[in-house]
Amino acid sequence: MQIRVDFTPMVDMNMLLITFFMLCTTMIKSQTLTIALPTNEKVQNEENMSQASADDAITIIIDAKKKPGPTPGTLVVDSVNGNVVNEIYYYDGKPGGDGGMFGAGGVVLSENNNLKKSDLLSDEVNSVGDHKAQGIRKIIQDRNKDVLEKINALKKDLSDGKFGSLETKAEREEAMAKYNEAASKVRKDENLKKPVIIIKSTPEASYRGLVDILDEMQINSISKYQIDNLTDADRVMLDDYRKHHNE
């Protein structure tokens, strides 16, 4: 005698359970980005304040793209994913350069406006597979050449096995630790010329823009950067830039 059990209901039930577990789980753990901000307390002694020299400083301003025309203030939204579109501006040194943005009596000096527009773009990859930086990344990389050259040399050393073998997981971790230590030494090397980046954002710009720029800091091995508040001069420069470029 043959006994046959029909497993179809069992499969049905299992499928339901699988669906339940699949929908309820998170497979990917979130990543984190650590940031350290300076204290809010006022520094009593002016001498203790570390000032970035104008040669090294780059200020990046993140702003939300707004619709031109009679309804200013309406934010442009990406038609595909519904995200707020951010724009990236930057200037070297002080706002308005050495002349400053304001003349006698608070007159805005448009000719001194040293604000430039840039873009957040990912690398252009050619047929051979070489990366070429574009937009704001290129600007940062040009300024941080000295550090990046050394970092790239270290990266090559790592892949050539100069920090130890990369065969097993334990060995790989050990090599990575050595590499990270060497890389952090290069990033903090005072003898290398490296920029100080000041990140500012208008209130309307989205949080994504901030994280994107913080990412650029990491990609380009920038050791000195800070998040700062938008000043009046920055605002004036943004308005002035828009006026002259019909935006």
């Binding site: 979130s30 990543q31 984190t32 980005l33 650590t34 940031i35 350290a36 901000l37 300076p38 204290t39 809010n40 993140i62 939300a64 519904g82 995200n83 707020v84 954002s201 208008t202 209130p203 309307e204 710009a205 989205s206 949080y207 994504r208 823009g209 901030l210 994280v211 913080l214 998040i227 508040n229």
Partner: peptide
């Protein structure tokens, strides 16, 4: 990701005031 910087700045500023100067962003 589409939260305005104004709101994020408010949260960060509040943390800074109570000397919570280091934190992480998910």
């Amino acid at each position: 990701q589409n939260t305005s910087f104004e709101i994020i700045h408010m949260v960060m500023d509040n943390l800074q005031t109570i000397k919570q100067n280091k934190f992480t962003l998910l």
